[in-house]
Amino acid sequence: MKAAVLKSFGSPLAIETVPAPVLGTGEVIVDVVASGVLAYANEVLSGARNYLLELPIVFGAGCVGRVRATGPDATRLRPGDWVFCDPTVRSRDNALAPDVMLQGLTGGSEGGLKLQKYFHDGSWAERLRLPTENAIPIGAIDAKDAGRWCALGKFLVPFGGFLAAKLQAGEIVLVNGATGSFGSGAVAVALGMGAQCVIATGRNETALADLAQRFGARVRTVKMLGSEADDRARIVQAAPGPIDCVLDILPPAASAVQVRTAVLAVRPYGRVVLMGGVGMQGGAGLELPYPWMMRNCITLHGQWMYPPLAVTLMAGLIRSGQVTLDHFEVTAFDLDHANEAVAHAAAKSGPFSMTVIEP
């Protein structure tokens, strides 16, 4: 089969023929129809992000496709079923603290690298082999909409954060870093879950205005100007009431001060979820006042990715119309142009812009 292979960091993807995956027990093989391209894929491929990858590897994290074959332990999946292939692979031998890796993107940890040695290759190929539990039915869709359904990935990451925070309908949410692809997805998801209001922060004034125009009065935007106290004061002023939940999803280039600006805006007994990349490239750590956190009973939760049930729940929110895929502008490339797709994703990153590869 044809695949896009990363042979060494800093070199272009090699488009070549590789052996087709062989089915094993506890596994599914999927015909890949569309796979999203992360805005920062170029940083992973260059080695700048220092992701743990055993090379050579078929690159690509997650996809939408159709089941080709299932192992003997599958009781519901059938060939032809449309599925979202969740790249979040968990070890099966420790339910309390499983190792986690993102298939086709990073081992995440030394334990995750052991998983990667087996579930080695990603989705930028004609076929993908993955654990049975990671091939999650999404119901019948039109094949021409498969690329748009890759937006599930943009929604699932912040959805995992809101599930961890136990977000309730009617609450006020602050999305810190709302102008990126995952941050803008967080705004859409919070509204779909019933948030009374979303305070969206960012430095890109044009992107903030776009969010306000798309979602109307339930979104209030705050441009971050760089002064911690002043920015926090404007966040609090913009909110129609006490802020119940803060989701930080700032990228690695942001500073810990930007995180603290948002965290300290939450109300007493409020919840904060950290999902961004701050600190991944070095720099000062996040300093929070112990007495303030203790006296105000603040819940601080770190969250990487999302629980397995999240895909089913998010597909339900999309099918019910609470969250829509219609906002996304999709640009598709075939496998032969995977390197061009990576460049395009980096150049056209931002709210509701999505690049996909369609093998």
Rank of each mutant, 00 (worst) to 15 (best):
P268T: 15
Y269I: 01
Y269M: 14
Y269C: 12
G270C: 02
G270N: 08
R271Q: 12
V273P: 04
M275A: 13
G276D: 09
G276N: 09
G276R: 02
G277M: 01
V278D: 02
V278R: 09
V278S: 11
V278W: 03
G279L: 00
G282I: 06
G283W: 12
G283H: 05
A284E: 15
L286M: 11
E287V: 14
E287L: 11
L288V: 03
L288E: 06
L288R: 10
P289G: 03
P291C: 13
P291W: 08
M293F: 04
M293G: 08
M294I: 14
M294A: 12
R295Q: 04
C297M: 11
I298G: 03
T299A: 13
L300P: 01
H301C: 05
H301F: 09
Q303Y: 11
M305A: 13
P308M: 02
P308H: 10
P308C: 01
L309N: 15
L313V: 15
M314P: 01
A315I: 15
G316F: 09
L317G: 07
I318W: 03
I318S: 02
Q322Y: 04
Q322L: 12
L325S: 07
D326V: 03
H327D: 14
H327I: 07
H327R: 14
F328L: 10
F328V: 10
F328K: 07
E329W: 13
V330R: 04
V330L: 10
T331I: 10
A332L: 01
F333N: 07
D334T: 09
L335K: 00
D336Q: 15
D336W: 08
N339A: 11
E340H: 11
E340Q: 09
A341G: 09
V342C: 09
V342T: 07
A343Q: 05
A345T: 02
